[in-house]
């Protein structure tokens, strides 16, 4: 039992390291690792966070558009698919740079590799540049992030709410938003029996 525990712990230690596994056993692990090393070298990025063979780089908001464009257009990387754009609200959790993080999940059909990019967004000035000019798929993803977290994407062609009604006043996936809302669900006129349609 204690031996098993040790194993798990030592694995965890390793996973915070860039070289998660010096000799990957699976072919896809090698692929991901080689690609991550190439990306880190090309853009001079800090060591990525590694979790179960997935690599995540943190980049500054000012560089995200240029980096994504190069990752997409350069033959060497060819990350031609944006799987998802989403965000996380860390609120008051310790150990995080800012309150919000926006995450970009990209995938290369050609090299069959994944990559995740993280951009920290300040709570007082929740704005960052849009990448919808690079990936068309970011258009709706960014609208959803705006809808749920209230992060503004500068230069977005149509930054409107995508899921909630347009007059909805708050951003419900922020962690300080109450589960039952702030009265939005009780805010309708009450119809009585025999009421006539306003034509």
């Amino acid at each position: 039992m204690s031996e098993e525990k040790k194993d798990v712990e030592s694995n965890d230690e390793k996973s915070s390291d860039f070289d998660i596994d010096p000799n990957p056993k699976q072919e896809w692990q090698t692929r991901e690792k080689v690609m991550a090393e190439k990306v880190a070298e090309r853009f001079e990025l800090d060591a990525p966070v590694v979790f179960r063979g997935q690599y995540e780089f943190t980049v500054e908001a000012s560089r995200i558009v240029q980096i994504l464009r190069e990752l997409k257009e350069d033959e060497e990387f060819a990350f031609n698919r944006l799987t998802d754009v989403t965000a996380v609200d860390y609120l008051k959790l310790e150990g995080y740079e800012e309150r919000f993080a926006v995450l970009y999940f990209i995938y290369s059909y050609e090299h069959k590799t994944h990559l995740r990019l993280r951009v920290w967004v300040d709570e007082d000035d929740p704005r960052l540049p849009t990448v919808s000019g690079v990936f068309g798929a970011a258009n709706w993803g960014e609208r959803e992030v705006y809808d749920m977290f209230g992060l503004e994407f500068i230069g977005h062609p149509n930054l409107e709410r995508i899921l909630l009604p347009t007059n909805f006043g708050s951003f419900p996936l922020r962690k300080d938003y109450p589960l039952r809302g702030r009265g939005e669900r009780d805010d309708f006129p009450r119809l009585r029996r025999g009421e006539k349609e306003d034509l």
């Binding site: 419900p172 109450p178 589960l179 039952r180 669900r185 009780d186 309708f188 009450r190 009585r192 029996r193």
Partner: peptide, 15 residues
């Protein structure tokens, strides 16, 4: 579904 986006009974707003 006791959440922010669900109407808690349509009888609040229509007979």
């Amino acid at each position: 579904f006791d959440t922010y986006t669900m109407i808690q009974g349509v009888d609040q707003f229509i007979p």
